[in-house]
Design a protein around this nucleic acid. Structure first.
Length: 758
RNA sequence: GGACUCGUAGCUCAGUUGGCUAGAGCGUCGCAUUGACAUUGCGAAGGCCACAGGUUCAAGUCCUGUCGAGUCCACCA
């Protein structure tokens, strides 16, 4: 044995040994209760970050512990296609090459992204290995594997059959840059400074940051309690505007704050979620004015032949301009007409933004929705009644609050990279479909369903298809494959969480595999609390909906590992900690232990750099205890006697340390049962270093009864290695291998050795 | 605006149902030492447990309020 433990020499080799030995693959034994964890699938095209190391460390501890205890233990690995996120990343790459996704037909783009992802996928798989995850690679899944697709599609079919799927025009969080819809929970809010304009509005003054939408306003809302405007309620008004008069109704809305601005709010049902709801209540028309590329669309006005020439010129000026640009032009014209009363330049408000940081443009679009009422009720109850337990307990509030507030879930995304909805539209039956495709010469055309048939371009449309938009009311069929030759498939894909929400099912081969029957429901879902509502809630919903049984019993939520400066790690802040550097420098055992001990209670914590170093030193201490033990045993003339509790001649110090070891085993078991990983780790650390190394070993050096002392030492040491193995798998297995001659069964690996009885 | 969490040694954090003479790692200081390990050993300094009230035989721990930090949720033009 070398003087110091060199992790680089062992980690890779040991992992390979484990993997090859089949130790990660459980033997199904119907007489025994299995222990199952599904690895939350990291983004296939991303890299593992520090949080992932913590996640893997925790799960690996549980898995190795149960495996050693003899439970048939399964830990299923997988990666996620991460639809929107990956597509954003890929499009950035395209942009660097001066290209955009609009230059590709759907199929080609998909293939290209797939290639990009598959190139990166192996990288992340190897990172998972490097972290020591004892996952069963023979059951590895990717969210776009064929069997996953089938299950996801049939779940959609079932939901549809049960009347839980609908299509509707709905106010969605639409990003004009990304060209897709986002679910409410994916939207972030940013503070922004935008001028607040006070405009003359007939007899009123209103305050708005969005004068550009005024052309399509259909009402004015006031608080019904506001005395100032009481007499106007229900009245219709002609309001002079930039393009002539607009007719508007004054409606009551208790949400209007009389204190804000002038106490009157303009209502634009087509571009504001709140106004959309109001519009439904009061039957207001929904009149869009911003197109899907985030440009003003005045075609509705320009098609009126009788329009005043001044107004026509203005409309032409605004037409197809980006929103902010058009706003500037309009403000100028408002000034000219004397309609702009004043501007508050210092106004700060929050605006919704998408994942990539673009401003969201609330837009009314046909989308696919899931009715969540019945699903969420069951999922809510499962936690409320304790069928599923959440650790730490206080996180439960986040879950129940979210569940109570949850509204229907928009599951369609206008992305290419994802699982396409198994919905088909016949062109014959739907002449008004809007189909965008590339002609063989690269020209991009938009035709109606009718138009495609009339020009005989169905095959071209199929080959060059980019996007299909079916108006509400279109006839469709749900099918795994095309129902006929004049059918086109929906181009929308599922929200990533729609597929990953079924992860515990698809990874186990739902509905009828042996695995599914044996391993479902799983034991623990361990993940970051950040995705409690995005992911965990959906898994519970789908699990109960499809199987009648919860997908897991316990949910353990770990905290976020923040940067050394106490802030969340982010590329823009430049404070990201790359775990690989720490693995390289201190070894993965040390990194894992450091992270584990950084948080005892699931709260967020700063990256514990000191502790990583401390545990690197500990690994070395452990290593040297091994060297010392070997040395002591080799000094003996006769073979070391096997330790036995009933051995004669045990001294006080022997009995003391044996008692402490017994207590330690009990502590570790207890703490792990309660998900108190830091406590367990700390207890072993204290014992090994300060009881075994500092006291017992020092004392042993001068003992006369060498045989007995050596037997006790060997027993304590081997037991410590076992206790520590779930936490620091590499160094313990490395030592185990180095000292094989001291062991009763030299060929046995530590990973599959037996856990300890108290 | 609502909710959650936190405020304990210079730093990063433990302290689970109230019983603590308040702990660990790192850092600091002193001493030691070439055969298990300097990625070492022995020892020391360092804390009105944010602040103010309350409950209790007993409060870092429970309750109320104040101040400070962070995060999540939210349709305020």
């Amino acid at each position: 044995m070398d003087k110091n433990f060199d992790h680089k020499k062992y980690e890779k080799e040991i992992y390979e040994m484990w993997e090859k030995s089949g130790a990660f693959t459980p033997k199904i034994d119907k007489g025994k209760k299995p222990f199952t964890i599904i690895l939350p699938p990291p983004n296939a095209s991303g890299g593992m970050h520090t949080g992932n190391v913590l996640m893997i460390a925790i799960e690996d501890i549980l898995v190795r512990w149960h495996r050693m205890k003899g439970d048939p233990t399964l830990w299923v690995p997988g990666t996620d296609h991460a639809g929107t996120e990956t597509q954003i990343t890929y499009e950035r790459e395209l942009k660097k090459e001066g290209k955009s996704r609009f230059q590709f037909d759907r199929e080609t783009l998909y293939k290209n992204i797939a290639e990009f992802v598959f190139k990166n996928k192996r990288f992340i798989e190897n990172q998972i290995r490097a972290m020591g995850a004892s996952v069963d690679w023979t059951r590895y899944k990717f969210t776009l594997d064929e069997d996953v697709l089938e299950t996801v599609r049939s779940t959609f079919e079932k939901l549809h059959k049960d009347g839980l799927v609908y299509r509707d025009n709905y106010m969605v969080n639409y990003c004009p840059v990304c060209g897709t819809t986002y679910a409410d929970i994916e939207v972030a809010h940013e503070e922004k400074n935008d001028p607040l304009y006070f405009m003359k509005y007939g007899p009123f003054t209103i305050a708005t940051v969005r004068p550009e939408s005024k052309f399509r306003d259909t009402a004015l809302a006031v608080n019904p309690k506001d005395k100032r405007y009481k007499e106007w309620l229900g009245k219709k008004l002609e309001i002079p505007g930039l393009l002539g008069p607009i007719t508007m109704t004054v409606i009551p809305d208790p949400e209007v704050n009389p204190e804000f601005g002038t106490g009157i709010m303009k209502v634009t049902p087509a571009h504001d979620p709140h106004d959309f709801e109001l519009g439904k209540k009061f039957n207001l028309p929904v009149l869009p004015i911003i197109d899907l590329e985030g440009r003003m669309d005045f075609s509705w006005f320009l098609s009126q032949n009788d329009a005043d020439s001044k107004y026509r010129a203005r409309a032409e000026k605004y037409h197809k301009k980006k929103v902010r640009e058009a706003r500037k032009l309009m403000v100028e014209d408002l000034k000219e007409d004397g309609l702009l009363l004043k501007t508050d330049e210092g106004y700060v408000h929050t605006v919704p933004t998408c994942k990539a940081g673009h401003e969201i443009e609330p837009t009314v679009l046909p989308n696919w929705f899931i009715k969540v009422d019945s699903l969420k009720e069951a999922a809510f109850k499962a936690v409320k009644t304790g069928k599923i337990k959440i650790y730490p307990k206080w996180r439960e509030i986040t879950y129940t609050r979210w569940m109570e507030a949850m509204h229907d879930w928009a599951i369609s995304r206008q992305n290419v990279w994802g699982i396409r909805l198994p919905v088909w539209y016949s062109l014959q039956k739907n002449p008004t479909l809007q189909i965008t495709y590339l002609k063989p010469d690269g020209q991009r055309v938009l035709r109606s369903g009718e138009g495609v048939l009339a020009t005989n371009e169905l095959n071209e449309a199929k080959a060059g298809l980019q996007q299909l938009r079916a108006p509400i009311g279109s006839q469709y069929e749900i099918n795994q494959t095309s129902p006929g030759s004049d059918y086109l498939q929906e181009t929308d894909t599922f929200d990533t969480w729609f597929s990953s929400g079924q992860w515990p099912l698809v990874t186990l081969g739902y509905p009828d595999s042996e695995d599914f029957k044996y391993f479902y429901p799983t034991s623990v879902m361990e993940t970051a609390w950040e995705i409690l509502s995005k992911w965990v809630s959906r898994m519970i919903m789908f699990g109960i909906y499809l199987t009648g049984e919860v997908p897991f019993r316990d949910v353990y939520l770990h905290g976020i590992v923040r940067a050394l400066d106490g802030r969340k790690m982010s590329k823009s802040l430049g404070n990201v900690i790359n775990p690989e550097e720490y693995i390289e420098q201190y070894g993965v055992d040390a990194l894992r232990m450091g992270l584990i001990s950084g948080t005892a209670n699931g709260r967020d914590f700063n990256f514990p750099r000191d502790r990583v170093i401390a545990y690197r030193n500990f690994a070395n201490k452990l290593w040297n205890l091994g060297r010392f033990t070997m040395m002591k045993l080799e000094e003996l003339d006769s073979p070391t006697p096997e330790f036995d509790k009933k051995m004669k001649g045990l001294k006080k110090q022997d009995r003391e340390i044996l008692a402490k070891l017994k207590k330690l085993i009990k502590t570790v078991d207890e703490k792990l049962t309660k998900f108190r990983f830091a406590d367990a780790a700390e207890a072993i650390y204290q014992f090994v270093w300060h009881e075994l190394a500092d006291k017992y070993v020092e004392e042993i050096k001068t003992r006369e009864d060498k045989e007995l002392a050596a037997a006790v030492l060997k027993h304590i040491y081997l037991t410590s290695l076992k206790l520590l193995h779930p936490f620091m798998p590499f160094v313990t297995e490395a030592i185990w291998g180095e000292i094989k001659n001291l062991r009763k069964y030299p060929d046995q690996m530590l990973i599959t050795s037996e856990w300890l009885q108290v």
